[in-house]
Nucleic acid binder design. Sequence first.
DNA 1: AAACCGGGGCG
DNA 2: CGCCCAGGTTT
Length: 361
Amino acid sequence: MADRPGAPGTEEEAVNRTRAAILAWFDRHGRHDLPWQHPATPYRVWVSEVMLQQTQVATVVPYFHRFMRRFPSPRALADAPQEEVLALWAGLGYYARARNLHRAAQHIRDQYGGELPADLDALEALPGIGRSTAGAIHSLGQGRRAVILDGNVKRVLARWHAVDGWPGRTAVARRLWALAEHYTPAHRCADYNQAMMDLGATVCTRRTPRCHECPLQARCAGHASGRPEAWPTPKPKRRRPLRQTRMLILQHGDRVLLQRRPPSGVWGGLWSLPEAAVDADPKSAAAALGLKVDQAGHWPPLRHAFSHFELDIHPIHLRVSGAGQAVKESDTLWQSIHDTGARAVAAPVARLLERLREYTP
DNA sequence: AAACCGGGGCG
DNA sequence: CGCCCAGGTTT
C-alpha cells in the first residue's frame, strides 16, 4: 500500500518539513532588500546574476544601479555600442561576460521582441547563460519553478549531504544537481532559491560556518561529522609530482664528464651530468662508463621545478681514474672544470659545476 | 600567495 | 569527459 503524498512519516513529508524550515529561516534572516529584488524582472535578475558570477554583492550593487540607469531594458542594452557596455563594466573584470551579455541582449531584441524568453532551454541557449543562471532567471525573475546550483548552493548541499568529491567533477555535479532538484519546491520556489543562496552566503560560509544559526543543523551530515568545513571537497591541487634522480659528478683531475641529452624532452640537446637511479650503486654506474671510483662523497640535494613536475637531484661526487670508453661517444666529453661556461647546461647542472669549481683548488 | 568562481571552448 | 581560462576578491 502506497503512502499518501505528504502523509506523516513519508519521505515527501520530511522533504516538506525541510523546505518549511528553510523558508521560515528566509523570512526572518534572508536578504529581502537586494536592488534586483525590487522589482525582480527577468532582465534585472539576469544582469545581477551575471555580475554576481564573479563578484560579491557589496561590490555589485553600485555597478548594478549604474547599469540599470543607463540600460533600463534589454533593448537599450542591445542598441548600445559594445564599448559603452564595457565602460560600465570596467572594474568588474571578466569582460567576456559583458560581451556575452551584450550579444545576448541583441538576440533578445532580434529573436524575442525585446523580452527574455520564458522557456528554460531558450534562456540557456543565450550566450553567457548556463544551467544555473537560466534557473535563477526562470525562478527569481519569472516566478516559475526552476533549480539553481551556484557556488553557495553547492556548498550548502555538499555539507548537508556530505557529498564527497570536487564539485567540478561531472559525477559530483550530477549528484548535487539531483539533490537540488529533489528539494526545490514548486510553491515559493523563488524564495527557496534565494534562501539557499543566502544561507550559503551568510551562514554556511566556506571557512567557518555558523552552524548554530542554520535551519538545517539538525539534518546536516557535515555538521554531525564535526568538520563541516571539510565540504565541499576542494579542487585537487595540481600538485606537481616529485621525481628523484641521481647526478654523477665524475671528476678526473680537473675535468668532469658531461653528456649531451637527447634532442627532445627535458633539457633537450643541453649538456648535463650522467644520471642514475637514486637507489643504484654509483660505483657500478661509473664502471659501466669504464671508470674506477677512488673516492665518493654525497652532496646536499637540489630541488628543481619544471612546469609539470619537480625534480629532486641527489648529487654524488666521484673522483675517478681510468680513461673510460665513454669519451669515444660523440655525446660524451671531459670538460675542464675551469671552463664549464663553454657548454650549454641546464640551470641546476650549472650550479653543481660551479660548486665543483669552488671546491677544487 | 593561493583559492575561488559559472560559463565557454577545446581536445 | 576533463581541462584550462579570465581577473578581482577573500582568506
